[in-house]
Simulated assay, not measured.
Amino acid sequence: MINKFSTKLLCALCGMFFLFLSFSFGFASKEKNNVPESINMAVLNGPSGMCFAYLFENVSKIDNTSIYYEVCASPDVLLPKLLKGELDIGILPPNVATKVYSSQPDSIILAAVSGFGMLNLVSTDKTIKSLEDLKGKTVYVAGQGATPEYIFRAILEKSGINQNGENSVTLDFSIPTSELAAAIVSGKVDYAVVPEPFATVAVLRSSEKLKVYRSLDLQIIWSEFFNTDTFPMTTIVVRKEFAKKYPALVNSFLQEAENSIKWTNQNTYEASLLVEKHTLGLKAQIAEKAIPNCAFGFSPAKEAKPQIELLLQTFLKYAPASVGGKLPDDNFYFE
């Protein structure tokens, strides 16, 4: 009976030993290959997240590392999760990313730009052909303290147009961004600076009785004044600790992100269906029309640095605290 018990005990011990060896080998293998179990990535609800719907649908693993996706309502929701380590990769406006890095340089780094300028002045006034035509008018602007405001202020200043006093352009921020398209369509306001998809929504929902026009493309005006094609509006950021520990994996993810952006631009109908399926903020019918106007593109951080810094200098001029009071150093840019 003792021999029988001893045999069972020996078998159990052997099983535990081999299980331990198996676990240890698997763990060592993971560490040796420097691959984490998973990546947690979040996008923002709305246009900046639409170009990643392809990832949600088709890319569940990279280099044997699982990827989990989520959609956050705003940067205010996404950012705390990133800083607490609940997320590894996220989508943020460049000014928000810069401000965080300025106060917490070990928190995040900027890996790439995923979306460029997509601002339009929409109007029910078909006579608007230039900034000069806006003199004496009130323009409602989406997002006080954000990129639309400072881009618009910068190009007005470059045009020599006052923002106060006689013959000036008055900026009004009293209507929330989400309500501006409806305000234009209803005739409540005549002029508005809006990003996508709000410009597309306003144009599509206008009527013959009160037609809405894309009167001015702010990217074209910006390029004329600042000698650059456009400006970044959306960036991919990574937790700094994660990027330092797994740089090859981050590069692999960025390649998938670039592929997703290219696919979205080339397959607007299919992409729009995925946008609705993964609840990224738009119905497919609107998403399909908006995607061509959303300026999705991919540029690695180091390559995009001049455009990023030009935008940040604009923020520094009008609201330095919004980007931490200074330009970020080279360690901000992933390579």
Score class of each variant (00 low, 15 high):
Ala271Arg: 11
Ile91Thr: 08
Val77Gly: 04
Asn64Met: 08
Leu274Ile: 07
Leu327Phe: 08
Gly187Pro: 08
Leu180Asp: 00
Phe25His: 08
Ala73Ile: 09
Val141Asn: 02
Phe334Thr: 04
Lys126Leu: 06
Met233Thr: 08
Ile236Gly: 01
Asn3Trp: 10
Phe242Pro: 02
Leu210Arg: 15
Asn259Val: 06
Ser102Asp: 13
Val203Gln: 06
Phe296His: 00
Gly324Val: 14
Ser38Phe: 13
Gly49Cys: 12
Phe116Glu: 04
Leu92Phe: 12
Ile286Thr: 15
Leu249Asp: 11
Gly187Trp: 13
Gln307Lys: 04
Ile291Arg: 08
Ala181Arg: 04
Leu311Val: 00
Val169Leu: 05
Phe242Gln: 03
Val203His: 02
Leu87Arg: 12
His278Met: 10
Glu270Lys: 15
Tyr269Cys: 02
Leu204Asp: 05
Ser66Arg: 14
Thr228Lys: 12
Ile67Leu: 15
Leu131Ala: 06
Val212Gly: 03
Arg205Lys: 15
Ala42Pro: 02
Phe253Glu: 01
Met50His: 06
Asn3Leu: 11
Leu171Met: 14
Ile109Cys: 15
Gly49Ser: 10
Ser260Tyr: 06
Asn34Tyr: 07
Phe116Leu: 11
Thr7Cys: 09
Ser215Gly: 01
Ala28Gly: 08
Pro80Phe: 04
Ser207Tyr: 11
Leu121Met: 02
Thr235His: 03
Val193His: 03
Leu316Trp: 14
Glu258Thr: 01
Thr230Cys: 01
Ala12Asn: 09
Ser299Asp: 06
Ala295Ser: 15
Arg153Gln: 15
Ala142Pro: 00
Ser272Val: 11
Leu9Glu: 07
Pro197Phe: 04
Asn267Gly: 05
Ser159Cys: 00
Gly187His: 12
Glu270Tyr: 15
Gly143Tyr: 06
Gly117Leu: 05
Gly85Ile: 11
Ser168Ala: 13
Val193Leu: 09
Asp133Tyr: 00
Val43Asn: 11
Glu303Lys: 15
Ser48Arg: 14
Ser66Val: 14
Ser6Trp: 10
Ser60Trp: 14
Asn34Gln: 13
Pro148Met: 00
Asn95Val: 04
Gln255Ala: 06
Val194Leu: 06
Leu78His: 08
Ile39Lys: 09
Lys84Asp: 08
Phe226Ile: 07
Lys289Leu: 09
Leu78Ala: 08
Ile286Lys: 05
Pro292Glu: 10
Asn45Cys: 04
Val193Lys: 01
Cys72Asn: 12
Cys294Phe: 12
Pro320Trp: 12
Ile67Arg: 05
Thr235Pro: 04
Pro247Cys: 02
Tyr150Pro: 00
Lys32Thr: 04
Leu312Gly: 04
Ser114Trp: 03
Lys283Ala: 01
Val212Phe: 07
Gly281Ala: 12
Tyr69Phe: 12
Ile91Leu: 09
Gly46Thr: 01
